[in-house]
Simulated assay, not measured.
Amino acid sequence: MLIRSVIFGALASVLFTAASQAQDTRHLLESKESLYNNIYVYEQPPYRSMTFGHNRRIYTESVYNTQDEKDLPVDYTRFMTASLMYAKDVHSILEIGFGGGRTAWYLHRFLPDVPVTSVELDPTVLELAKKYFGIKEEPNFHVANRDGRLFLQESKDRYDVILIDAYRGPFVPFHLLTKEFYQLVKDHLADGGVVAQNIEPTTMLFDSAIKTINTVFPQLDFYRADGNIVTVAYLGDERKAEDLAALAQERDKAYGLRYRLQDMPAERRRIDVNGGDVIAADAKVLSDDFAPVENLKSIERHNRKLP
């Protein structure tokens, strides 16, 4: 749609392009096949990348600057941290979808007194993240090997910031896109909490994903990040620009962040989800395709690799 292109800019994928290009310039350090992914770790000094193979293409999940552990080379990961200027408090952070762990590790390094919990389904991904991406267990930094939705169902904890960045190739697993899932996320937010999610806008599910999030969270802000869209969702009234700017300045000073929150509101966009030409009027709200009694079996089916 023309209006979407005006608002969001060119929608080229932030995920690195075809496998042929990647393999021409990068050295393969290790590849492993797990129950959930075909995983490749490449090196092109000073960078290492974790990639997942899907339908004969390679999609980059995480990039690590081996000479600077506080670097976030992939643009959208920087905008995931914009959530810090929305949350009323920052006493706890949850990330669903760990990959190489660079976003969670960045937050841990700059907010060492704040507990950061990440949830990663694939144990092989965790193994490679620890081996190649400078990740290790530390006080206030924990990675749980679990499906993100099941983790929330089993947890009684609430979080000030919840980050959702779980992908298989170009798609978010469906059970992490439904109205019931976002209601579960809402139930695990602390008072004044916020959710940030990376959503690839060129897929056919983008419009439905935005509509679905909006059924649970009345407020949505969008940040364009080199082709990807980071959606910040929250309850209550719209956060005014001057309020975001004040809190951004306060938290930049408190945390000394490498990527300043004060620089991010310039990319903030507000759109009418249920009207206008940006989100398709006929986009469907996504809901679970299984009854509660079938929960475990259905989530397992969604998680497995396609044949």
Rank of each mutant, 00 (worst) to 15 (best):
E294T: 11
E300H: 09
N295E: 07
I279Y: 02
I299R: 02
P292K: 05
A281S: 12
I279C: 01
E294R: 11
A291F: 09
H302K: 02
E300K: 12
P292L: 00
S287K: 11
R270I: 08
E294C: 09
V273Q: 02
N274K: 06
N303L: 05
G276N: 08
E267A: 02
I279H: 01
K297P: 03
N274A: 03
V273N: 05
M264K: 02
N295T: 15
P265Q: 07
E267F: 12
H302F: 12
A280P: 13
F290E: 06
V273I: 10
V278S: 00
R268M: 07
F290S: 04
V293H: 10
D272V: 07
K297T: 14
P265C: 00
D277A: 04
R268C: 01
K305Q: 10
F290R: 05
R269E: 09
M264N: 08
R301F: 08
M264I: 08
E294L: 07
K305V: 01
R268Q: 09
N274E: 13
N295Y: 08
I299L: 10
M264G: 00
D289C: 00
R270P: 12
E267D: 12
I271M: 10
V285N: 03
S287C: 06
S298K: 14
V285W: 05
P265R: 08
M264Q: 05
R268P: 06
P265N: 03
I279T: 03
I279G: 00
D288T: 13
N303T: 06
D289T: 12
L296G: 07
A280E: 14
F290W: 15
V293L: 05
S287H: 15
G275Q: 11
K305Y: 10
K305R: 15
D288F: 03
N295L: 06
N274D: 15
E294F: 15
